[in-house]
Design a protein around this nucleic acid. Structure first.
Lengths: 159, 159
DNA sequence: TGTGCTATATATAATGT
DNA sequence: TACATTATATATAGCAC
């Protein structure tokens, strides 16, 4: 009755997982068949599961063999090239992530420091003491600048 | 505007066929991925087309090799096993990095918000207390304390 | 050629039998 | 457990740009 939006993660409940497996496997194989028919191309799908001894495939096992043979017959050079490319791609992603982590760490550090200073200033109740030598207007201006900068940062983070 | 019911037969019109191919190929690969994720099983799809030199596959070429090897009952060669392992390793690293980035972002957001609150508190205090004067010596002492604490924190963060 | 849009068609999650 | 139902979610056909 629901068709509820489902989280894209491993379904822990055994019976629910199996039900989903059966439904989706059926749908998937149908889709492969349709794509192949509509566009006149070769395609295959292999699905393994603990529920069946043999893998589910589309089209027939021999058809799968044929399609896979084609895939597997890609000259070694091209295949390895593609793999190298994929590996390079993955490594690049890692590098990017690591860079991101570094930047966020730096950012965190700065924020912590500023926060710490503010915290100590507040806790120390420094504001209750004599301030004859500081211009209140200067202080207000400084704080105003900070507020603006923080506003910008939060906007950036939220996008 | 239509989503018209389509006849399950080869699409004669070239451009329409190609458009359908692109749409459905994308959908199909997504479905394979979802089935694999949701049910924790191995699955793969290979799609050939005259539009692309390389077949479209899910998961990666080495993943396809692995699933097909199972289907074909061919023991994996040491080489391909190694490749799969390396790929899994790289993907795991990416996953970890992405997780790290997420956590740091969350951390950043919290810090920013807390910082903002402190700023506001400070402004409030300044505006509500009569602070025409402050003792500079006290201020200097407090800041000195803060700097020491900050130094300790930085050391912690950098380790 | 590809992208975005929107009405429809299709897939499917939860439930009942 | 597998199958039917049905409310929702998702996929996608045709069109506009």
């Amino acid at each position: 009755m629901t068709g509820k939006k489902v989280k894209l993660a491993f379904i822990i409940n055994d019976s629910a997982r199996k039900a989903t497996y059966n439904r989706r496997k059926k749908g998937l194989l149908k889709k492969v068949k349709e794509l192949s028919t509509l566009c006149g191309i070769e395609a295959c799908a292999i699905v393994y599961s603990p529920y069946e001894h043999q893998p589910e495939v589309w089209p027939s096992p021999s058809g799968v063999q044929r399609v896979f043979a084609k895939f597997n017959n890609i000259p070694e050079s091209e295949k390895s090239k593609k793999m190298v490319n994929q590996e390079a791609f993955l490594k690049h992603r890692i590098l990017k992530s690591v860079e991101q982590v570094k930047n966020l760490r730096r950012e965190n550090r700065k924020l912590e420091i500023t926060l710490l200073m503010f915290h100590c200033l507040s806790v120390g109740k420094i504001l209750h003491n004599n301030m004859s030598s500081i211009d209140l207007n200067d202080l207000a201006w400084l704080i105003d600048q900070n507020l603006k900068e923080i506003g910008r940062r939060i906007e950036t983070l939220e996008n």
